[in-house]
């Protein structure tokens, strides 16, 4: 009998609280709103990065309302199980960071002109930055669909290079955010509906000792 693999037990337990799609809904809506605001030249644009501060609170509130009554509650603290996934996450983060840095250096050395690199290369940079979070979390929590999400963000970024050549770089990035956010939002909603159907709300007694 091998030693109990507590790292895997912990990752599976954490993953069981990430099946609901709520994180995808929140980030999808956030990216979509940012893209729309960018496209419309909204005055709220400079404040959008601060929206990231709001998302964790919204996530907790949504989990309290929809997730814990269905699948139970657990506090994971800072246990040992994170270490293995944490190392992979750091490697993924370093690889993405190096890719971004290499791209930035190449752009600077290539001297292809601001307009050319801003419409062709800036969306790729944005795509890599968007992929950063999902890939790091995919390694950390073992949620496979987030690897696919990171790849999708990069694919969308490369596809944006072939958009209307008359578009400015801001139009391209706005479209990129709207497409990425929209797809993420739809995927999140689908996951959420599946989650609600699979896990009905449990009675109050189900959360307590049956004695």
């Amino acid at each position: 009998m091998p030693d109990l693999d507590l790292k895997t037990i912990r990752r599976r337990a954490m993953r069981s609280l990430l099946e609901d799609g709520i994180l995808e809904i929140l980030f999808g809506a956030y990216l979509l709103a940012w893209g729309v605001a960018l496209d419309a030249g909204s005055r709220a644009l400079p404040y959008f990065p601060f929206g990231l501060v709001v998302i964790p609170g919204l996530l907790r509130a949504a989990q309290k309302r929809f997730v814990y009554p269905r699948v139970g509650y657990a506090d994971f603290g800072e246990g040992d199980g994170r270490r293995g996934g944490g190392r992979s996450a750091r490697i993924a983060a370093m690889l993405i960071g190096v890719s971004i840095a290499a791209l930035a250096v190449w752009i600077w050395r290539a001297g292809i002109g601001f307009e050319a690199w801003s419409t062709r290369m800036l969306p790729v940079l944005v795509g890599l930055l968007l992929a950063f979070g999902p890939v790091v979390f995919a390694f950390k929590y073992g949620v496979a669909r987030w690897h696919a999400l990171g790849a999708l963000f990069v694919a969308i970024a490369f596809a944006m290079r072939y958009m209307n050549p008359r578009w400015s770089y801001l139009d391209v990035i706005a479209a990129q955010l709207m497409v990425s956010g929209g797809m993420l939002l739809v995927a999140g909603l689908a996951l959420f509906v599946l989650f609600l159907r699979r896990y009905p709300v449990q009675t109050a007694e189900a959360h307590d000792d049956a004695r």
Binding site: A13, S16, G72, A206
Partner: peptide
């Protein structure tokens, strides 16, 4: 592997 958990969580796991 957790700090604490409720009954339903343990039932599911």
């Amino acid at each position: 592997v957790v700090e604490s958990a409720d009954f339903l969580f343990i039932v599911r796991q």
